[in-house]
């Protein structure tokens, strides 16, 4: 292994990889949410389907998709590895566990909120991305989304998953900055607040879609 990979495999290196991929995914989520807002346009799905087929027709998208897939994969694999390694640094667990006052519930549950997000991601990809890939460009994606969200079980899971994603992002956002060493007395409180705001926006934004259709939107 070269010095580069060895460095990335150190305890700090692993965290940096988590933070880098995490920030990349954070960026992706914003774009994803912005595009999907087209769902709310009251035009029978025209805007949304247009948006999705335009995306599909762009030649750069498959490349970006590979990048995105790698980002997810690295983030997940590295996360699981870290969880396992960190866990095995204490073979004999404490018998009494009292959460420290200084640590948030969000930070302590990253592996759980992350795992549920991963399960969500699989289902999410199966529902939409896979259908588009296998059935080609003719799929009425808007209708697919609308139908699936009208199922309260599916929507319920979606909403819960988005709440947990929000928890994950709330810690992940500021944690990435801390990992890069950007913790300054002046700016870090702002980063923490921005992270929370971002997490709420993402969770509410994405969850508003199933809610919209559940409540009989369009």
């Amino acid at each position: 292994m070269s010095w580069f990979f060895r460095s990335l495999d150190s305890s700090i290196g692993k965290k940096i990889l988590m933070a880098l991929t995490g920030l990349f995914l954070i960026l992706f989520l914003m774009i994803h949410l912005a595009g999907n807002l087209a769902l709310f346009k009251n035009d029978g799905g025209l805007a949304f389907n247009n948006y999705s087929s335009t995306l599909r027709s762009l030649p750069v998208i498959p490349i970006l998709e590979i990048g995105l897939g790698l980002g997810f994969l690295l983030h997940i694999i590295q996360g699981v590895r870290l969880w396992w390694l960190n866990r095995s640094a204490r073979s004999e667990k404490y018998k009494i566990n009292t959460p420290s006052k200084g640590s948030s519930i969000f930070s302590r549950t990253m592996v759980y909120t992350g795992s549920i997000t991963f399960i969500f991601l699989v289902i999410h990809l199966r529902s939409y991305w896979y259908t588009v890939i296998t059935e080609g460009h003719e799929v009425d994606l808007f209708n697919l989304v609308k139908t699936s969200f009208q199922d309260p079980v599916y929507s319920g899971f979606y909403i819960v998953a988005m709440a947990l994603l929000g928890f994950h992002l709330n810690h992940g956002f500021q944690s990435a900055f801390q990992t890069f060493g950007w913790n300054h007395v002046k700016y870090f409180p702002f980063i923490q607040k921005a992270g929370t705001l971002y997490a709420i926006l993402m969770a509410v934004g994405f969850a508003s879609m199933p809610v919209y259709f559940l409540l009989g939107g369009q």
Partner: peptide, 9 residues
């Protein structure tokens, strides 16, 4: 030793 998860405990 484990890696840091920024829990700040």
């Amino acid at each position: 030793f484990g890696a840091c998860s920024n829990t700040y405990a």
